[in-house]
Design a protein around this nucleic acid. Sequence first.
DNA 1: GGAACCAAATTGGTTGGGCCAATTTGGACG
DNA 2: CGTCCAAATTGGCCCAACCAATTTGGTTCC
Lengths: 242, 242
Amino acid sequence: MNQVEVKRIVAELLPYIRYHRLNPGDRLPSERDLCKRFDASRNAVREALTALEYMRVVERRPNSGIYLQTLARDTSVDAMVMFQDAGVPPLIEEVADFVETRRILEIQSLTLACARRTDADLSHLEAVLRASEAEIASGKPIAELDAAFHLALVEATHNQVFLRLVNSFYLTTRGQRQVFFRDPDQCRRSHADHLALFDALRERDADRAVAVLERHLASVRAFWNSHAADEDGAPGAPASGR
Amino acid sequence: MNQVEVKRIVAELLPYIRYHRLNPGDRLPSERDLCKRFDASRNAVREALTALEYMRVVERRPNSGIYLQTLARDTSVDAMVMFQDAGVPPLIEEVADFVETRRILEIQSLTLACARRTDADLSHLEAVLRASEAEIASGKPIAELDAAFHLALVEATHNQVFLRLVNSFYLTTRGQRQVFFRDPDQCRRSHADHLALFDALRERDADRAVAVLERHLASVRAFWNSHAADEDGAPGAPASGR
DNA sequence: GGAACCAAATTGGTTGGGCCAATTTGGACG
DNA sequence: CGTCCAAATTGGCCCAACCAATTTGGTTCC
């Protein structure tokens, strides 16, 4: 993988912030300090900070220092993507927020898609479904194809801006999906729901599509509830060597 | 402003891409070439590229080159923010998509907010409204306070993830808002609509709130239509020389 | 002529040293 | 006690390299 140093620094900096209980507005160590702490060159540290700055995680004040931004409100969607790429687990209390957000976005996606889908959209979806079927028959990892299906669905809305928004959001939940689809039962159920969604979309029946989605999301919520009960204090994200 | 060099390079690189009609998958000039073209050091160029890479605008392949990502689908929300910060105007055909996306997000915001708002949320909104009133009485620029109002509204949903999503989206439309609120009429109308939304929210009347929003968005659409008619070929965003 | 081979050039990845301007700090001086 | 100035610290920026991997272009050999 490229940019290993920068990635490493980003991945170490985020846990550092949590470990030291840094709050929005707090000052981070100086660039030169961070070099020593993470045993990296200053350029690498600066590149990592530039990425974090552009995602509004951090603010740099010349001749002063590096400060944490207001995390909850000003942090960007892509910062969330970065966090999860770096193996930082989402806060447990946020999982419900994620599911709810997904519900909002997908209901709207389905409604718009039912109105605007073309035949090309349908065949695109069909291709993904066939691929899923093959995967589900042999191996297991449906995680990527699930994302592909939902994304193809959003593409059928023919709203480029909305598509980008939803796509960014999806990337923040990649880790969650990988946990979810480890369970073969969930793979089969999801696939069945996808088929039902496809049917509804073909007939432009938005009400039925939303009903299917609601049922699907209910089972997703149930999964995460039982999952949280399984491992109370444990991280909810894929193994990160920390 | 800090990071002037990096900002400059980002701001010059995006028009460069458009000018040279580069498509997703195309290769950009090498880092060393970009240094010469933009008369900058390699470090500065690399920092700019790192930012662009983390926002999925660009992909770097070691020993090969720098390639454009699939713009429509994979580009991030923050890339859109960066584009507009850099003065790159949104495509005209995307303005409708922006308004539609805003509609989706705000209907959901209002629905959730009506169900969950606290008294603290109300007084926060009230404070913003008072500030708007003062601004509207004297000067004109309500753009920032409008954003503050809508954001305070989303905060009343008490969904942190959704809040971040909507906030990121809002930042992509800052330029559009600044054009919109140059018109004093729009300032007054928007403020009146905000008052109506506040009332509906206080009484937890989601249906009425959505009705007000629909009316408001209709006038927004009308504004952009007439605005597009005014200057057909001209940029829809703050001056950029294309 | 064609194929195998090798060296030079090119690519992004990374490091270290260095200079600048602005701010902060702390002690010396009045 | 207050004033002032120099040293240390901060982020912003640049330069000159070296590395590993790939590509390129020729050369050599069959």
